[in-house]
Design a protein around this nucleic acid. Structure first.
Length: 222
DNA sequence: TGCCAGGCCCTCTTTAGGGCCTT
């Protein structure tokens, strides 16, 4: 594992490709038996969506009505969906060794670990969080829910929220918007995945100073 | 509608509490 603490390390850590993903699930906790019911993902390559992945998953149990109301996904839709092992294997091949991004990644990471471990896949280590990065780049947003940020930043809006591919696509648009914002504010030519991921781990009060240091601008700027 | 879990993060803090975010 490589610790990223210095500007020099970011200069040599450049991922032109990331996979932005989102899970719809039966509930909040894989530790309490909740399962993934839909995976949506898009592959960003050099700032554009180069590929996408979407599949429902039959969890083998009826959905809580709350989840059907929230997502629009019904038991009937899942009855003919493939089982988790097949979809997770396909998703693992889609991801391969590409760094991952999700909105509030701590939630999706728990399900990713649970499902990948269930079927013996190696768990990806590099997962960036668009919510943590957005809290530092857009501290004045009304809040940092995905839908709020999409509206606040006037990003392209999918037909609906709480479907995996739609949410993944909007998260990808947010990720790209944050890259553009850092290029504009700090003069970066490119924003590596590792920089945005690391930014989300910096205390908010130190985020601007951290970015100025990376940009080689030690003096405060507005 | 709000709870469920759990990591993050702020404050009236750090031997803690509670809001934010995800389904």
């Amino acid at each position: 594992m490589t610790a990223l603490n210095s500007p020099r390390q970011f200069a040599t850590t450049d991922n032109a490709s990331v996979v932005v993903f989102d899970f719809e699930t039966t509930g909040m906790s894989p530790q309490q038996g909740d399962r993934v019911i839909e995976i949506g993902a898009v592959r960003l390559e050099d700032g554009v969506i180069a590929d996408q992945f979407q599949s429902l998953i039959n969890p083998g149990c009826p959905l809580n009505p709350f989840i059907t109301d929230l997502t629009g996904i019904s038991d009937a839709m899942l009855a003919t969906a493939p089982d988790a092992e097949a979809v997770i294997s396909d998703f693992q091949r889609f991801v391969a060794c590409t760094p991952l991004v999700a909105h509030n990644a701590s939630f999706d990471r728990r399900f990713l670990i649970a499902e990948f471990c269930r079927f013996g896949h190696k768990v990806p280590l590099a997962i960036g969080c668009s919510m943590l990065a957005a809290r530092r780049i857009f501290p004045d947003a009304p809040n940092h829910k995905l839908g709020t940020l999409v509206s606040y930043l006037e990003l392209p809006t999918a037909r609906r929220f709480h479907r995996a591919l739609a949410d993944a696509s909007m998260t990808a648009a947010l990720w790209l918007r944050m890259e553009q914002e850092l290029c504009s504010r700090y003069g970066f030519e490119k924003v590596p995945f590792a920089l945005l991921k690391r930014l989300g781990q910096i205390p908010r009060a130190k985020a601007d100073r951290f970015l100025q240091q990376i940009a080689g601008r030690p003096q405060d700027r507005n």
